[in-house]
Design a binder for these strands. Structure first.
Lengths: 200, 200, 200, 200
DNA sequence: GATGAATGAGAGTTCATTCAT
DNA sequence: CATGAATGAACTCTCATTCAT
């Protein structure tokens, strides 16, 4: 039954994500993964036709996180929301672990028609929303379109997190974001300095 | 003779770099690489004791580029130099190709005691120099140290280039840098807008 | 099922042993071995995680032989049992073949915590038992401990068999043992001459 | 010139033997050996047409040792000479090292018409001489021929030394020989007990 | 004589994937 | 639904040996 199938698949997905968080890339080897999950390789391929499906899991998870957990916490102040977004992104990476962060920052380009970097992805939509509303309300001050702002923000944030993962998490990612993200954004926000930490 | 050995090694290095530029990761497989170069695996290992030595090639190349080609072009205006640096970095990636860019942006962390992300690398030193002189001359306006500025700049630039490579080079990297790099830097530079292209 | 796995493993083990007996060292090369057995290398590694596991096969086989086949044949006369042991050891080598004999006489020292020369191995235990009982019953006459006697006996017997293998089995090992083993033992046994073949 | 060639070859031989004593099997790899000796592989092959020639070196050396150093020390008492021989053999192995001992005990069978186990080898001749004179003088008491005695003695001694090497030299070989060699020989010698150490 | 660059077969091992049960 | 035995191409790396210089 499809219902059952999807439920089991979701269950396995969660276990796999947890495994990747704990053990990183290693967990992506089918045999090892199956051992850890206590299933046969046959079963794995029953639910995940290809190994690369695993990568989609990581993307779905981050999208879910931002849609379900973050968006409800937003306030009417889009500048604050933006800061919240950036810090949440960093916190997500820090919690998810170096390995998983490295993984979804670097590995996949696009796979089976699904573009993981796409602005169509929910996480980008959340960000675009922030800029749309912020520009409307005059909280941001830039000639860029909301889509451009969102794109730029994602590139920078991903850069931050990937650097952290490449350095094996040997510094405080959240602190780094709090210190340097304002620099990246200041140019787009009138009076950002007054509304958050500043390096000056 | 060592002279001869080094010359041959350099010759092979160049061919390997060219191959990686053309074909990317694939080229890193020893057998394939040897086929393409028309040498035996024995010869390869004669010059490159380990496969991972290949990665060092990419880093050496970029360091060479910035030391030999860029630094002599610097002027007394460090803000201009910074822009030059960013654009050169982008141009280097664009010329080097998607595959090689992806390769040196993502793959190696550190290898055999040589930390490829280290601020000690020549390319970072060049950047630190810009900020040191710029701060001295009052061309920059920030409370961050030159090292912090350089670090931040590298993280952002790498983020730009890696994004471009992950999207398989399907947009103009240089244009992207010209548009968005000023945003990342503006907060550190008094009057940046007036001294270069602006998105406003 | 583990049952099935072990059965298949045993089946392959036997084929491998037979192959080693026939062809010796050569057979230890994974690729060749797989060809001969008509299995893929993947299958081989499924049952034998490492090539060195093959060596354990040879040791297990000889241990099994002495525990299952020889020990039940022992009588109350430990001097006779000792002779039986020596001749059986020789017969085992002769039947097993030059190649396998050379193999387990020379190659391995110790592997993965299992010491193949150890006095703890079943084959040594069998021998120690002979000397323990023989000394108790006064059938042997020596100041050495049972363990020392067993150790000495094994060293000598192994020396005999290894020599035979090194000479490519070009003489009758059993006859050699019947002729010379008494010399090695006589000093420990009161009246050995009367109880067996003598070179006088 | 042949003279010069042989001199250089002998010089290299000695360096190689020293190297094997120090580092064991490893030294048998042509490349490594050449590095250590400071010669090119071409030079090596000039003097040693094949790698297996190296093994002959070890045999020649032991033969030389027994001919030059031991034989002159012999007395008129062949029983003493036999003991001297056994202890010298052990001492030679102990000095030569575990690696070299393992090497010449196990590796080669026969090569290019030269049988390393042959009774024709000088070392065996020395031993045969002991038994020939001993039997003549009535110092030994056995029905075996001198050649058989020598053969048996070599097999036992080699067994002792190989065991020592296989256990990585973790006990005192000379003490072992002093304790156990008499057992192996007692049956052939009237009154051996009185003429040397006994385990009783 | 001496060099060392070049060779290339062959080593052990990994791992995503298939498919009969 | 689930199993896991079987596959086999591909991987990195080693090393004795040759030969043009």
């Amino acid at each position: 039954m499809t219902q059952k199938y999807l439920a089991r698949r979701r269950e396995l997905s969660e276990q796999i994500c947890a495994l990747i968080d704990r053990e990183g890339y290693e967990a992506l080897r089918v045999r090892y993964l199956c051992q850890q999950l206590g299933i046969s390789t046959g079963t794995f391929y029953h639910y995940f036709p290809s190994q690369t499906d695993l990568i989609l899991l990581l993307y779905q998870r981050i999208d879910d996180y931002f849609q379900r957990e973050l968006q409800p916490a937003f306030t009417g102040n889009e500048v604050d929301n933006l800061r919240l977004f950036a810090e949440s992104y960093g916190r997500y990476c820090a919690e998810t672990g170096v390995a998983a962060t490295h993984c979804f920052c670097s590995l996949p380009l696009s796979y089976q028609g699904s573009d993981h970097l796409s602005e169509a992805r929910p996480i980008s939509q959340v960000l675009v929303g922030i800029f749309e509303r912020g520009l409307e309300k005059g909280q941001f001050c830039t000639s860029l379109s909301p889509r451009q702002c969102a794109r730029y923000t994602m590139v920078v944030l991903r850069g931050f997190c990937f650097d952290w993962a490449k350095r094996e998490g040997n510094y405080d990612l959240l602190e780094f974001i709090r210190t340097f993200f304002p620099f990246s954004i200041r140019g787009m926000v009138e009076g950002w300095e007054g509304s958050g930490p500043s390096a000056e």
